Simulated assay, not measured.
Amino acid sequence: MAITAQMVKELRESTGAGMMDAKKALTETDGNMDAAVDWLRTKGLAKAAKKADRVAAEGLVGVMVTDGRGVAVEINSETDFVAKNEEFQGLVRDVTRVALETGDSVEVVKAADLNGQTVEQVLTDAIARIGENMTFRRMHLLEGDTVVSYVHNAAAEGMGKIGVLVALTGPADKAREVGKQFAMHIAATAPLALGEADLDPAVVARELEVQTAKALEENAASAKPKPEAVIQNNIIPGRMKKFLSEVTLLGQSFVMNPDVTVEQAANDAGVRITGYARVMVGEGIEKEKEDFAAEVAKTRGA
Score class of each variant (00 low, 15 high):
P227W: 07
T27M: 08
N153T: 10
L40Y: 10
P237L: 00
M159H: 12
T135A: 14
V247H: 05
N219R: 02
T118W: 02
K242A: 15
G270W: 12
D53R: 10
T102D: 07
N267Q: 15
I162S: 10
S105E: 09
A56C: 06
V55L: 09
V262E: 03
V122D: 07
K23D: 13
H152D: 07
D268C: 02
Q117N: 15
E246C: 06
R278E: 02
K241N: 14
K289V: 04
V247P: 01
N133P: 05
E209A: 14
A293N: 09
D173L: 07
K241E: 14
Q264D: 04
E217R: 10
M19V: 15
G44T: 04
A190M: 13
D67Y: 05
F243E: 00
A72N: 05
P258S: 12
E286C: 04
A277D: 11
M280L: 09
M64L: 14
R97S: 14
K214N: 11
A154G: 03
V108T: 12
G238S: 03
V203P: 10
T66N: 15
K84L: 10
E58C: 14
K226H: 00
G144H: 02
E120C: 04
V204I: 10
A187P: 05
S14F: 07
E263R: 14
A17P: 03
P237D: 01
E78A: 10
A83Y: 05
V203D: 06
V255N: 07
A221G: 08
R138C: 00
F243H: 04
K180C: 08
F136Y: 03
M20N: 04
G179N: 02
L208P: 02
K298N: 05
E295A: 07
A2S: 15
A266K: 07
A229W: 14
R41P: 04
A52M: 13
T212Y: 05
M33H: 12
E13K: 14
R206M: 06
E58V: 07
L40T: 09
A5V: 03
T212G: 01
E295Q: 12
Q6W: 07
T79N: 08
A172R: 11
D200S: 04
Q252V: 01
D38A: 11
T124C: 12
P225I: 10
T274D: 08
A205L: 00
K161H: 08
S253C: 07
R97E: 12
E196L: 09
V148D: 02
M184R: 05
H185M: 01
I273W: 01
D67A: 15
G170R: 01
M139N: 06
E288H: 12
K84Q: 14
A49Q: 01
R129G: 11
K23G: 11
P191K: 01
A190T: 15
V63K: 03
E78Y: 08
R12L: 13
F243W: 05
S253Y: 11
L208K: 13
E120Y: 02
A156R: 09
L26D: 07
A128F: 15
A25H: 08
V281W: 07
N219M: 01
G144S: 04
E87Y: 13
L250Q: 10
V279I: 11
K51A: 12
R176I: 09
D268H: 02
V65D: 05
I285G: 08
T79S: 12
Y276D: 00
F88P: 02
K84M: 06
V108N: 15
V106Q: 03
V164N: 09
